[in-house]
Amino acid sequence: MRDSGLIEIDHFGLDYASDGAPIAAVADVSITVRPGEFVSIVGPSGCGKSSLLNAVAGFVPATRGRVAVDGVAITRPGADRGMVFQQYSLFPWKTVRQNVEFGLKMKGVGAGTRERMARTLLSLAGLIGFEDQYPDRLSGGMKQRVGIVRALATGPKVLLLDEPFGALDAQTRQIMQQILTNIWQRLGISVLFVTHDIDEAIFLSDRVYVMTARPGRIKAEVPITLPRPREVDGMMTADFLALRAELAGLIREESLRAMGGELAGGLAGLDVMLRDGELADLL
């Protein structure tokens, strides 16, 4: 497909500072995204999947291991990696078009070229007619589409998305997933996508990595061989449901492990209360 856009995460580890010894957020993760591939990372909350993405974006340095795109180690943020955030991150003081042109402006691209490139991308995301609106006037789905288009405008080698559709309703989510698939297929760009939504990961991806509870490790790597183009109806097929059950089982184990301590403690307390009749008195 393409000869650039290879993401290599090699024995990556990330600690964060605390009062005592540093706490490991990510233990030892190795992930590869091949050029043009769509790869998702799923896992229980707090497993460090967003930290992983932030390391590829260059926002946080690796404590251990190495992150590289096309063989070049990541040391800082840059326009060669497009980033789409979970929360809306459009500049409120810029119109849709100015938001999309921002990266090009930073590169020193002339106004005429910027406008032409912005128009092309906006049409790809179905946003023609909204160029001169301020983000305030857009729906959540439109804001995230502009966010995706903005990240793509500089022609990055890879696109990184951190639960971009988390705040959207189910219907809008599905439409956004199809728009993203469409854009990805046309541009042939490598995508690393973080989500906690299993259906979303299966629907979009070529491969899905499942992470363990903190400190995050790779628990499993699941290839998604469902044929493309994938339709929303395809989410009811036996193959899809089997993948779904497999991934859900893997994540469930980790979620339980993540809150295992509290849960066990709480249940033990409940037993004591029942034996002593306290709860019965209350009822």
């Binding site: 943020p77 980033m83 955030f85 500049f91 921002f102 930073m106 500089t154």
Partner: peptide, 26 residues
């Protein structure tokens, strides 16, 4: 919003541009 600063940096903005394009209007 700190995420706007991150967004600007990931779009290739340097320190001067971040002042001009993010902090000042923000």
């Amino acid at each position: 919003d700190p995420v706007l600063v991150l967004a600007a940096r990931s779009l290739g903005a340097g320190e001067g541009a971040i002042f001009r394009e993010v902090y000042l209007p923000g």
